[in-house]
């Protein structure tokens, strides 16, 4: 491949479907990262090495460190997922492989397509 080919790759006009998919993937990765940044430090700070476990704070019967560290973020993650799926993700044409619910292209004795 020549330098001009390399330059050509940089100058191609990308499919908006691909660009949307890439942007969505980056946002989802960030969502995972934020979830980790909240859940692990919060649980570690409030839930590890509790001085007097018999007086451990609870919320709805669950240890509070777990409810606020995991339970509540879980509901927030579900809310984010709902917004992401129904208001943010873009629909688009996936294309056709030619084998979707189509009759077989090759019967016995004939050649099959790959």
């Amino acid at each position: 491949m020549t330098d001009s080919d390399s330059q050509l790759v940089d100058e191609l006009e990308y499919d908006p479907f691909f660009l949307h998919a890439r942007r969505e993937a980056v946002i989802i990765f960030c969502c995972w990262f934020v979830a980790m940044l909240w859940a692990v430090p919060y649980c570690y700070y409030y839930g590890y090495g509790i001085a007097d476990p018999e007086k451990i704070p609870t919320t709805f019967g669950i240890p509070s460190w777990l409810l606020w560290g995991i339970g509540m973020p879980w509901l927030l993650a579900d809310t984010f997922t709902t917004w992401f799926c129904f208001w943010f993700m873009k629909d688009g044409e996936l294309g056709s492989a030619g084998d979707e619910n189509l009759p077989p292209v090759a019967e016995a004795g004939e050649e099959a397509t790959s």
Partner: peptide, 28 residues
Amino acid sequence: GLWIGSYMVVPICVMGILGKRINQVARL
């Protein structure tokens, strides 16, 4: 609860990160 905590984002990660593109490329 903490051990399994990341399941809060497992569906969107497992299906959302690769889903659209891998399906499109498989069809192409």
